[in-house]
Deep mutational scan, measured.
Amino acid sequence: TGEEYIAVGDFTAQQVGDLTFKKGEILLAIEKKPDGWWIAKDAKGNEGLVPRTYLEPYS
């Protein structure tokens, strides 16, 4: 299990392996990579890379 984050903006996948999401979606951070791209999972179970700058902790 990971930590929940809320998307603060829309993001469209730029390449294969990225995860597209919309502002307000809750994402589960699976792995926090030091380069600023995290592996996350959305509510539908889709998994991919997301930019850290689009996420804020969800409580």
Rank of each mutant, 00 (worst) to 15 (best):
T1R: 14
T1G: 13
T1S: 13
T1Q: 13
T1K: 13
G2E: 11
E3P: 08
E4L: 15
Y5T: 00
I6V: 10
I6K: 07
A7R: 01
A7E: 01
A7I: 02
V8G: 04
V8D: 02
V8R: 09
V8K: 10
V8S: 07
G9L: 15
D10L: 02
D10F: 04
F11C: 05
F11L: 05
T12W: 11
T12K: 09
T12S: 09
A13T: 05
A13Y: 03
A13F: 03
Q14C: 11
Q15T: 11
Q15G: 11
V16Y: 11
V16P: 15
G17Y: 06
G17W: 06
G17I: 04
D18F: 15
D18C: 15
D18T: 13
L19A: 01
L19D: 00
T20L: 02
T20A: 10
T20H: 06
F21Y: 03
F21W: 01
K22T: 08
K22Q: 08
K22G: 06
K23G: 04
G24F: 05
G24M: 03
G24V: 01
E25W: 09
I26E: 01
I26G: 01
L27C: 03
L27E: 01
L27S: 00
L28D: 02
A29C: 15
I30A: 02
I30G: 02
E31Q: 12
E31S: 11
K32E: 07
K32L: 07
K32R: 08
K33V: 06
K33H: 12
K33R: 15
K33D: 06
P34Q: 11
D35E: 07
D35I: 03
W38E: 01
I39T: 07
K41P: 01
K41Y: 06
K41F: 05
K41V: 11
D42A: 02
D42E: 01
D42K: 01
A43F: 09
A43E: 10
A43S: 14
K44G: 09
K44Q: 13
K44T: 10
G45C: 06
N46E: 08
N46A: 07
E47Q: 14
E47W: 11
E47N: 07
E47V: 15
G48P: 00
L49W: 13
L49P: 03
V50N: 01
V50F: 01
V50S: 01
P51Y: 13
P51D: 14
R52V: 14
R52F: 14
R52P: 15
T53L: 12
T53I: 14
Y54C: 10
Y54P: 02
L55I: 08
E56N: 07
E56I: 13
E56W: 09
E56Q: 12
P57A: 09
P57C: 08
Y58V: 11
Y58M: 09
S59G: 11
